[in-house]
Design a protein around this nucleic acid. Structure first.
Lengths: 148, 148
DNA sequence: GTATATGCAAAGGTTTTGCACAGCC
DNA sequence: GGCTGTGCAAAACCTTTGCATATAC
């Protein structure tokens, strides 16, 4: 049920080489930083972290690398409340539920995501990508808090 | 079925007065601009339009006014591909479907939105606000184009 | 050696903030 | 008259772009 989970940095380097992309120390650091991140991370935050361990890496390099990794199908970005955030592309059906009050995050299961997509698909044949935007709302505990 | 549609600028002025907010020419212009907009509009675009007909209005005033109108429940913002966009809070169940390829926009019906919300609600009791983020995907014609 | 990636610098754009002044009530 | 809102200026961010240099292959 989950076989796409174990993507290593080595796999990515291989994929880049196969595409004729060059493996630079900067790219290695950026890839490593994203790999070590569970969930999502903003470009600016990646830039900050990479710079703290490899000073001199320019933000523009980070942005260009992220765009390249996305067009290579290795990363994807989603829109959360505070802006764009990157995550491993392998995390299929990764639908973000974000509580508007406490910012807690949950994920929809792959099965649930499919049901949703099917329901929306009936509307004019639109095929949704539910992973691209988060879904805002109220988590259970915040609902209870507000109802009391 | 649609009674919340006909909110006038006068209604808003009244609501503000009731809350003890002051009615300035700038606020009137900003409210008028949002009211005349069908669908959504970005803060920067509001600033541009308001300035073009009332030069001297500062962007910071626009941002402060929009935040005020949102906390008063008169406006709400949603996240589309290019960032935050404001719309009348009255537009209930206004779920944006945006085509990732051609940027065409459709809306989900109130009924469809309810079905979706119910489905998501089963997940840990999360109560979604599907109006807050757009839903990305491919419209029917772009699917057909890509499949050929 | 050559094509590609990086650093640098600059610019562009959006949004926020502090403060003195203006103006709504 | 007093309190609130506005303009102004500055700054904080984030992100993009052109160009010369460095470097992976």
């Amino acid at each position: 049920m989950q076989a796409t989970e174990s993507v290593t940095a080595a796999d990515i380097v291989g994929a880049l080489r196969r595409r004729g992309m060059r493996i630079t120390p900067q790219r290695q650091a950026i890839v490593a930083e994203v790999m070590r991140t569970r969930g999502h991370i903003s470009p600016a935050e990646i830039a900050r972290r990479v710079q703290s361990q490899m000073p001199g890496v320019n933000p523009s390099t980070v942005y260009r690398t992220l765009a390249m990794l996305e067009s290579a199908g290795i990363l994807a970005h989603a829109h959360l409340e505070q802006g764009a955030e990157y995550h491993h592309a392998g995390e299929e059906g990764h639908v973000h539920l974000v509580c508007a009050r406490c910012a807690a995050e949950e994920d929809l299961s792959v099965q649930e995501a499919r049901s949703l997509a099917r329901l929306i698909g009936r509307h004019h044949g639109f095929r949704p990508d539910l992973t691209h935007f988060a879904i805002s709302g109220l988590c259970k505990s915040c609902q209870e808090f507000l109802d009391s």
